[in-house]
Nucleic acid binder design. Sequence first.
DNA 1: GCCGAACCGTAACGTACGGTACGGTTGTTT
DNA 2: AAACAACCGTACCGTACGTTACGGTTCGGC
Lengths: 217, 217
Amino acid sequence: MLQTAIEMMEGDGPTARQQDVLDAVLRLLVEEGDRLTMTAVARRASCSKETLYKWFGDRDGLLTATVQWQAAKVRVTPVDRKGLDLAALTASLQRFASDWLRVISSDTSIALNRVAVGHAGSDKRDLGAIVLERGRFALGRRLKPVLEAGREAGILEFDDAETAFRTFFGLVARDVQIRLLLGDRIELTDAEVDGDAVRATQQFLALHGAKTGPKAL
Amino acid sequence: MLQTAIEMMEGDGPTARQQDVLDAVLRLLVEEGDRLTMTAVARRASCSKETLYKWFGDRDGLLTATVQWQAAKVRVTPVDRKGLDLAALTASLQRFASDWLRVISSDTSIALNRVAVGHAGSDKRDLGAIVLERGRFALGRRLKPVLEAGREAGILEFDDAETAFRTFFGLVARDVQIRLLLGDRIELTDAEVDGDAVRATQQFLALHGAKTGPKAL
DNA sequence: GCCGAACCGTAACGTACGGTACGGTTGTTT
DNA sequence: AAACAACCGTACCGTACGTTACGGTTCGGC
């Protein structure tokens, strides 16, 4: 059953075969970066270039579909806002932090962000917008309710949830993402990721934790 | 007087004429991004392509020389470590923060980081390494002595200067750089930059300021 | 005034790659 | 079994662009 790029845009996701192709593009993107050729994609995915063009329109369409496909694969564990105490909030923040660190340090994320950054420089700003929307902004949308629940529970104090989120974001990511994107070889073991998540969470709580008793700053 | 790319690598910088060419590349890079062509550079700089190749070797050499040229233009105001008190340290940190925010939000920085990120994905990792070295790491080398002076003066408390610097970096940059690189249009007025610098500095002091009297966290 | 080096402007070359066309194969419908 | 759609593999086309080559101009040295 033929499914055009337009149909993919507005309807149900790619077919199984198309997903295979997009996964091949992902792998190729990690290996070769933005200089992957349509020929290489066709060869890797064992499909014809004609099919690629029929399904995805052109090279940019293929890259866009790939980015969306990868973004769709990222699923998150929701947080229950009931019975929130300091321990639960701390665990939640740590989990967000470690998840995020693992995402931005993954090969696929690095490769995808690289092509998105490259495309943001040209007229084709779509890729950057998608990555931003499904990455940074999606994280904010998921984390802000947690922060606000913490505030309602009297655990956190802040004026603006967006600002508070950005502080947390900075404490977690620091210079990791830009260094990775620029080619710095950072080794991030699981232990280090968890340690960084703990540190970032503690720092955030030190800044925005509710002041109780003599802990006034 | 002819000056080959090799001579430029190991010796005195580019000649005045070559600087004009590199400035033209910079402007073109801001306008067109990585898809600038050698023909466009030659036309913009009013020089021949033959000269470009004689001076810079090839396209990558031209881009490398451009990145180094821009990096060389960034100069910093040193900080005197004598008579350091909290006010002086605060002012110093705020200045670092606002300077850095202005750098990473400038058109040239964004354009340069974009091409560097793109090149970091291919075999040509040079550009990324240069940007990293003259950007993030240069900032760290300049800031760490300030932090250590603050610690010696009893104003700051931290174990590792590198870790403390990265915390400050995160508090300052937050999500700004990645958003700009991905094409997000962020408006950063001078007032906002200064305000962010103050906020980041206060947050850093809250985390690493020496505990005096009843201010224990 | 003459010579050569450096350089400009432009034309030309080679190639890599995006995009298209086409013959052959498989699987499905009638 | 005939017809047809979807698809694979490959050959092909057009073009953009990196790189080179060349004629003409400026300029410093003798």
